[in-house]
Design a protein around this nucleic acid. Structure first.
Lengths: 136, 136
DNA sequence: TCCTTGTTGATATATTATACTATTAGAAAA
DNA sequence: TTTTCTAATAGTATAATATATCAACAAGGA
């Protein structure tokens, strides 16, 4: 046996699925700690990271912020609100195979995948910004 | 007048251009400190960040790592080596206008731009990995 | 039930970046 | 040139995120 099936792992994975909307490790911890009051933050970080490495979850890295985790494994992309940090799905049928092929042709690197994150404003922050602009 | 033209700013911008290959703030600091031994790291971080905000430089955010800065302002993309962290340019003529338009159609967010980073292995790390695999 | 060792909890530590504040030094005006 | 105003700096403290370390624990096969 190589990896053991612990209550912590089960609960963490379940929490990501229940939270659904791209929780950070901290948010997962807050959810899990309700059921396992003694769980350590380190255990949550450790397991989220290894689950992402093993393909049970997707990790969405946010420069300058906490990583988010996604229970949805089908290929899709994400939009990040530059104001409040909200993260949402965006389903495009970008031809990823083509993009990878093109990238490999243009580079000496051996390219395996890519991360595409859109930046913008969520409807809420957009409304606020527009309202603020009206005052000027 | 709003922003002042300091020796520190000039030297930092010059350093990014001289280093050319996507230095991190730390690498810029190491270069700048040769000419200005008393400069503070905080000054380097502060100015790189504000220059990126004002469009004098491009910031390449790397989740889990330090941001890199690029003196090249023309639209292009980057490849990150997952082994050693090396970062290189990759010039694709992705139709960014189309991609933004498509993303905006598919999302309730007001999307302004996006970050596209490819992940793979640099030739050096690839060779090492291949050599290692031969042993098995 | 025992035994091996993967896993946990707790804490220390690393890394990157920003906040804070007294002091310095651009640059406009006198 | 000198004065004046205040943006910017140096130095340090602090924040935020994540990993390293290790003794104690527990999963699960024998």
């Amino acid at each position: 046996m190589e990896t053991r099936n612990t209550i912590q792992k089960q609960t963490i994975l379940m929490a990501v699925k229940e939270l659904a909307n791209h929780p950070t490790a901290e948010q997962v911890y807050e959810k899990v700690v309700e059921k396992l009051p003694n769980i350590s933050r380190a255990t949550v970080y450790r397991n989220l990271s290894s689950m992402a490495d093993r393909g049970l979850l997707h990790r969405i890295g946010v420069p300058g912020g906490a990583d988010h985790y996604d229970h949805t494994l089908e290929t899709h992309y994400h939009v990040l609100c530059t104001e409040c940090g909200a993260l949402e799905d965006i389903w495009l049928q970008e031809s990823q195979a083509d993009l990878l092929k093109l990238a490999n042709e243009k580079s000496s690197f051996s390219i395996q995948n890519y991360q595409l994150v859109f930046h913008g404003m969520c409807p809420c922050c957009k409304a606020k910004a527009d309202a603020l602009n009206q005052l000027h």
